[in-house]
């Protein structure tokens, strides 16, 4: 890759480069034109004949499941759906009961994830919102028309304990350990609650809002 004879800097450089704007390599910026979307979609429908029908069937299945879930939550738990906030807020005492019901009665057999978040005390329009944690859990049905069920649980910060889902789903083990490690939320009934990511002797829970991102950590020796 040889450099072209470099134009003299400063004084004359402007003149040599003035001939053309920053030169772009041939073809690099040229875009592959496509075809009209109707043509493309028609051709794909021919190549994959059952795709659209299956997608429609699954959408309706998923919608039916979502409705069933909403009805179930409304009747059994008295909570309204809250899709823009990820899921309804369920009372913490009924967390395990809800997970068991979803797994055994409604078929949400795949454990997806749990996500805890720390909300420090703040003033809202309606008053003072005390410091609390929010735990969001996601379960999923299997196979065609898979639907994910998400719900949130609010945990007071001073107690910071919630039921563990490990008796139901073995996959909850490490996810819950990680939330304990990073946020300090304890899980009642977890067989082996200890730190996962950080060394065992680490102090503090990094993902809490009062843990500064540049907290000095002593190098391990």
């Amino acid at each position: 890759m040889s450099d072209e004879p470099s134009a003299p800097v400063a004084a004359d450089g402007g003149a040599a480069a003035a001939a053309a704007p920053p030169s772009l390599l041939q073809g690099a910026a040229a875009i592959e034109p496509g075809e009209a979307s109707e043509v493309v979609l028609a051709r794909l429908a021919q190549a994959c004949p059952s795709a659209l029908a299956r997608a429609a069937e699954q959408t309706s299945k998923r919608a039916a499941r979502a409705q069933a879930l909403e009805g179930f939550l409304r009747e059994r738990f008295g909570v309204e759906p809250d899709p823009s906030n990820g899921g309804p807020l369920v009372p913490a005492e009924r967390h395990f009961e809800l997970a068991r019901a979803l797994k055994e009665e409604l078929g949400y057999k795949l454990y997806v994830t749990v996500c805890a978040s720390h909300w420090p005390a703040q003033k809202t329009k309606t008053g003072e919102d005390p410091e609390h944690f929010e735990l969001a859990t996601v379960l999923r049905t299997l196979g065609s028309g898979t639907h994910q069920a998400c719900w949130r649980v609010r945990i007071a910060a001073d107690v910071a304990v919630v039921d563990s889902l490990v008796p139901l789903f073995a996959g909850a083990d490490w996810q819950e350990r990680e939330q304990f490690d990073l946020l300090g939320v304890r899980f009642r009934g977890h067989p082996d609650l200890r730190r996962l990511m950080l060394p065992d002797e680490w102090e503090g829970h990094p993902l809490r809002k009062d843990y500064a991102i540049d907290t000095r950590c002593v190098p391990w020796r």
């Binding site: 979609l41 794909l44 429908a45 994959c48 004949p49 059952s50 795709a51 659209l52 299956r54 997608a55 699954q58 998923r62 795949l110 299997l142 196979g143 065609s144 028309g145 898979t146 639907h147 994910q148």
Partner: peptide
């Protein structure tokens, strides 16, 4: 038999078999 591409299609997987 569980694959998010077929069962919960995103992007254009709903157009593909």
């Amino acid at each position: 038999d569980h694959d998010l591409r077929r069962d919960a299609p995103y992007h254009v997987y709903d157009l593909l078999d």
